[in-house]
Design a protein around this nucleic acid. Sequence first.
DNA 1: CGTAAGCTTGACAATACTCAATCTCTGTGG
DNA 2: CCACAGAGATTGAGTATTGTCAAGCTTACG
Lengths: 256, 256
Amino acid sequence: MSLTLSTDTARGSPALSPVGRSRPAEPVVRRLARLAPLAAEDVALLESVAARRERHERNAELNRQGERAFTPRMVLSGWAARVRTLPDGRRQILSLLLPGDVTGLTTGPSPLSLAPTVALTPAHTAEATPLFEALTRRRADHPALARAVELAAAAEVAGLMDHVTRLGRMSAYERTLHWLLELYTRLKRAGLAEAGRCRLPLTQDVMADVLGVSVVHLNRTLRQLKGDDLVRLEVGRLTLPDIDKAAGVCGFDRGR
Amino acid sequence: MSLTLSTDTARGSPALSPVGRSRPAEPVVRRLARLAPLAAEDVALLESVAARRERHERNAELNRQGERAFTPRMVLSGWAARVRTLPDGRRQILSLLLPGDVTGLTTGPSPLSLAPTVALTPAHTAEATPLFEALTRRRADHPALARAVELAAAAEVAGLMDHVTRLGRMSAYERTLHWLLELYTRLKRAGLAEAGRCRLPLTQDVMADVLGVSVVHLNRTLRQLKGDDLVRLEVGRLTLPDIDKAAGVCGFDRGR
DNA sequence: CGTAAGCTTGACAATACTCAATCTCTGTGG
DNA sequence: CCACAGAGATTGAGTATTGTCAAGCTTACG
């Protein structure tokens, strides 16, 4: 199998087989392959790690009891989130993990517990310690993989920075729209969105905890966005009728 | 003078000479040495990198024109900040860089521009590309250094997560106090604070941009904190009269 | 049908922002 | 030594944004 790396718009994307039991690592491969040209061994390594897939119910913690908070892990399917909870119960979602995402790879076992990870939908993940080992002890054997993971980690940091900016300096209206655009962009890049449409399997409760607003206010904000026809929401789907217009409204920087 | 490295976890750390021209890398060495037991070569490498120190005026961008946004860099003295600016001029400070901090090391040259870095006080820094090289090409020769840098990067991510939580789920009052506590803790660990006191060479303008509030509101919030005697502010100094009490008020988790 | 989860709305309160002064330093030129 | 300028801190008044509480509503599903 040869992986032609696609660009943003997926022209020339290889015909990858649909996600399924046969190739559980596919989203991960797709994600990393666009960051650096993976070697066949790299792909094989990813597949072997993904073979140890685990299933999680909605709301289940991905880290098994006793597992270090930041154990390397790859998301094969479903959506998850890293969550902080304040002593009095307030909850903040720090970032979403979408299919293809890998975390905890640059950090390694760390003394500081960063944040527990929770499945927001039923999900499949795989513990990726072997991958971490490969990137530390046998790093020289996997230069492209190492590079790809490095870039993925940088993207994760960039995502946190974006979120800080949203929470610190944007109104709820801008913030919500900006976040939806980012989500769409991410899914698009992962090959999980078509023109202006993608899945959005999140309750308003969860979205409110991402965006740092109350559910009530989020609901009103979404209503406003719908009224301005910047956003359409059906059951588990999001539609962005005019992405350029939306990007203009909230200062979203396309081309990332 | 002998530097007894303060309490936290500093047992067995090497005795370091005071900060000065002779050992510009000292804050960096101190910072990393507490994360992993650096070898003599590691320290030598850090010193050699630090020898190429550059001076920056307040408000100067640390990244020289044309330099990649996330070029590896170490802060030798002074305070700096990573900054995002929205199209309409609103500004959010993402994180502070204190003496001893290193950034851009795990990422390497990245296609995405994360955020420009600006000096908040007159500062000395050094471009740390050689360090980055050592950690990639000759990583096997510097295991402890690699580990220390890894942990420092994890701490940076943890810091961003803390900030997301502050901005998303805490009131301005809690948020301000929580941030001041974190700042104090960081400085304390770096050996730059005594019991309950540390420098705070930031204008309220800057603090407001860190905390995502208006200057006016920050001012009132600080006033309230002073009124409750949780915080005292003199010229460029911060005093926390009762850290435990303060930590309780804002849910700050000591012991990090 | 009946239930439970999730969504929507109204009414009201608290939090935070903007605008526009005023005040307090600190350093500078005369 | 003093008046003055400029940066930064502080305050008041009015407004906008967002939160809380308490209902209803809708939908999926047993």
